[in-house]
Design a protein around this nucleic acid. Structure first.
Lengths: 153, 153
DNA sequence: AATGAAATGTTATAACATTGCATTTTATGC
DNA sequence: GCATAAAATGCAATGTTATAACATTTCATT
């Protein structure tokens, strides 16, 4: 994300936190900014390292977990559970509600692209499982493969 | 799985290993048997504990990882990466090829049901991502929710 | 029996995550 | 302003999942 867009995103998040009566503390904001500069998924410990590099200040993994927790609850960040990484929600700059995000995770370069599932996809899923009586709660699908860039290298 | 079906499954796996020139050692077989008695996903360390309880013999996590690795390569076991657990492939007693298994993982009781995706599902997925140039490699989808049994409790 | 390959054991360590309690910061009422 | 309660953060310990590196055992084949 460009520097300009990052600033814009941060402004929007500030507003949003104010509306919700939440505190976007310096460290939370720093972590969010870090993550906004990356299209790759980052592990908690990646963030610890990156934080030190960027802000010349140590932060403990525990703190990062808590801050990620905060950001996740507020739907500003997603956890990719198949590889224990975290990415900024692609809707952070807009007000879109989430239907069912698809995370396209590149097994080669680790970039994550978030796209929204068209309506027919949840429907097709539902059709596949209706006979089992299973009640789907998935908010997202994690799809692994090779991104366009890596494919063409 | 019933005791009878387990025996049958084991016999089939033995044959299969023979065909492929693989050794189904005692421990590999024991682990497979353990897993056949469970419909729940098991973590590596669950298996370690279970192994001790059933066979009164210690086995190290490292060994379990290796044996799971063997079973996974031979498509007898699946890894559920969203919760780091392992289950026996539901096709172990038949010769079905895998199209795209759907793992229906109960967030309450941890049971895993494996169903095959109808053809339209991969197609719907593909349609959703084709514009991104992303080349899907997923062999399976992990779906979380509440199973029929837990839903009705 | 000697050999080599595969399987398994052992130890250490990396990577990911949570708990519990202490301390600091911040918002709020007096 | 100041006391105080609540929220955020720091810190230490521990738990959980996974792999690496190297040693030993097992077993089929000569």
């Amino acid at each position: 994300m460009s520097n300009k867009n990052r600033q814009q995103a941060l402004q929007l998040v500030k507003q949003l936190c104010q509306q919700r009566g939440l505190k976007l503390t310096t460290k939370r904001s720093n972590i969010l900014q870090l993550m906004l500069t990356e299209k790759k998924g980052l592990s908690t410990y990646d963030i610890v390292d990156s934080y030190l590099a960027q802000y010349h200040q140590k932060i403990s993994p525990v703190s990062v977990y808590r801050m990620l927790g905060f950001l996740i609850v507020e739907k500003l960040v997603h956890k990719i559970s198949s590889n224990s990484q975290y990415i900024v929600c692609s809707h952070i700059t807009c007000s879109h509600s989430h239907q069912m995000p698809l995370f396209l995770i590149c097994n080669n370069c680790n970039q994550v692209e978030e796209v929204d599932a068209a309506n027919e996809l949840p429907a097709a899923l539902e059709k596949n499982i209706v006979s089992t009586g299973f009640q789907l709660q998935n908010k997202a699908l994690e799809l692994h493969g090779i991104c366009q860039i890596c494919k063409n290298i």
